[in-house]
Amino acid sequence: MKRNEAYNEFVKGIWRDNPVFVQVLGMCPMLAVTNSAINAIAMGMATFFVLVGSSFLVSSLRQWIPKQVRISCFIIIIATFVTVADYTLLALVPAVHKELGAFIPLIVANCMILGRQEAFASRYPAKLAVMDAIGMAGGFMLALFSLGAIREILGDGALFGVRLFGADFEPWVIMILPPGGFLTLGVILLFFNWFRQKKDEFLDDVAEAQRGSD
């Protein structure tokens, strides 16, 4: 039973409550750094580390954080992990770090992270908070990667720098420019809403049929 609950918290972040496609949070890194799949993955990993770490710490310390100053406490914890992520990326992959630029320090301002602390980690035990954080960060990474992959494939004809269509491919320049981020995200959100609408209609139909047969 307990394990089941933790599993639920994990799964909801990936699909049903996906932070990007359903909650539409964390738009700044989403639109800014997804012009190639590798940047998207690096940003996703950094966010993953920050979210899981700070959720664990906030949840463990939740008895000692005074309600009145909780937001500043959360931010200090988040900023600590962001600094760690910043320097780690700089040491391990300097090229990617340069590409991401100001957007790594800006993870602090990612409202998805603060939102999870406020809405979940500060109210639940550490185990559930960590599962929730893994799910949410996984969903975020999935969203970043799908956006980055679509934009890199169309805008550059490549994925992770590997050319897919040969030398004759005509790149869609707009896709690696900022408008491409908005267009791609819009199309994906359209798909999610359409899917949810279809699902609701289907469930309504099923309910109708059951009422009819009773």
């Binding site: 005509e170 869609w172 320049v173 707009i174 896709m175 420019l177 408008p179």
Partner: peptide, 10 residues
């Protein structure tokens, strides 16, 4: 405008 931004050379 979309085409102009997407395929500036063509």
């Amino acid at each position: 405008a979309f085409l102009q931004a997407t395929f500036p050379i063509a």
